[in-house]
Write a protein that binds this DNA or RNA. Sequence first.
DNA 1: TATGTTATATCTTATATAAGTTATATGTTA
DNA 2: TAACATATAACTTATATAAGATATAACATA
Lengths: 243, 243
Amino acid sequence: MNTPTSPSFRPLYDQIKILITQSLIAGEWRPGDAIPSEIDLAGRFKVSQGTVRKAIDELAAENILIRRQGKGTFVASHSQERSSTRFLRIARDDGITEYPSSRLLSVTRERAPEHTARLLDLRTGASIFCIKRLLSFEGVPRIFDEIHVPASTFKGLDEAMIRNFPGSLYSFFETHFGIAMIRAEEHIKAVPAGAAESELLQVVPQSPLLRVDRVAFTYGDRPVEWRRGLCHTERFSYVTEMS
Amino acid sequence: MNTPTSPSFRPLYDQIKILITQSLIAGEWRPGDAIPSEIDLAGRFKVSQGTVRKAIDELAAENILIRRQGKGTFVASHSQERSSTRFLRIARDDGITEYPSSRLLSVTRERAPEHTARLLDLRTGASIFCIKRLLSFEGVPRIFDEIHVPASTFKGLDEAMIRNFPGSLYSFFETHFGIAMIRAEEHIKAVPAGAAESELLQVVPQSPLLRVDRVAFTYGDRPVEWRRGLCHTERFSYVTEMS
DNA sequence: TATGTTATATCTTATATAAGTTATATGTTA
DNA sequence: TAACATATAACTTATATAAGATATAACATA
């Protein structure tokens, strides 16, 4: 029951949000797809168009759906040009937008240590993939990434697949595994460059690097990626906004 | 004119947003105040309650207004407990929330160099105040801040005023000068500690620090503060979220 | 203290119009 | 006839209004 006074009360539009999210989790509509029109959804969920509208409004505000007047409402995708850089916050100090090129270093299968398992909501020792890569701007290496994902969620992932894929990593995850990243939390520190990093990023050992730890989530706030990026911030900055 | 087909067309709710913002700029309602009820505003602006509602919804989403069911809608304030830490993104790694203590180092009047003037939308050489302070967690110094504000906007600011004020700096700006910070942009780098910083933050020279450059804005997107924070991130991280 | 009243924001539905997009039908022209 | 342009229709989201029920909070009153 969901009477207005019951303790588990949720407004209708919030319940619709959950129902839409469940369809996204189930893969009924995949990234890039159009979802049914507001009127269709209103009929399906037996509520008014205005209530569906409010639910979609909130999902659009969370960048999970994208509204396009006259065309319809679409499932947000990292394959779209507009959001290809949504999760990349490193930018040139001079303001010029430049897309980094990626060099894949390795893809290995490993057992999740306790720390990683906790972040990804797995059992310690669960099978994970570890992807290492180097991002370069203008040919200059700037970011060394170590990316960890559960093997169970990304069955069959291998180096060749990534290498042959033209787009971003998150776009790759979407098209090959149907996993859409919708949110991420980052913890940032300043750390001295170790031996491996200083070699890869071509900096002297011990020089300051930005260490960006990220946990990324898919629909239903399920963590599906944990990565550590080491970033050489000469002429580049991590840019963020708050309000 | 603002007919639907005119080039300068803005939807009604957007015009209402601007009118409300103008009242905030004019100081008609100050931080912490309740603004008139939706019905009152609808009467004042000669639109329906729903249109006022949509305008307020957006301003609330931008953290400029705060809605409280049953009580009214209030101008967001840094003096409120809930938002006192809204712009402080440095947090303990163990997740425990701890508020830093501040030690004021100096307040000086200076002439804005070209870089600072550009960020604050001033003429080079305009008079500014420079506030230096040290933030400590558990008595351990972690953040060295250099804060620059236009003297014209903060007339009469002096060291004693800040020293005697109990709350946060942004709360101080609100209560003494009516300036509410509503948005900030930050650029973050990893840099080696210089002589002065290493002394203040009790770290060995050249050790990595987080350098956080911030420009903060008040109503109407007017820049009113530029600061540089140098942060020792041992056992602390800069935390952020994206979607 | 308990109860009721009032004022507020919140939720839901309904209706109408505006505006952007796309496909199709209808011409018009070469 | 074929190719192209234009008008129209049908669909979408966006905007605006109205009205009623509900939740929350503050206050007055018994």
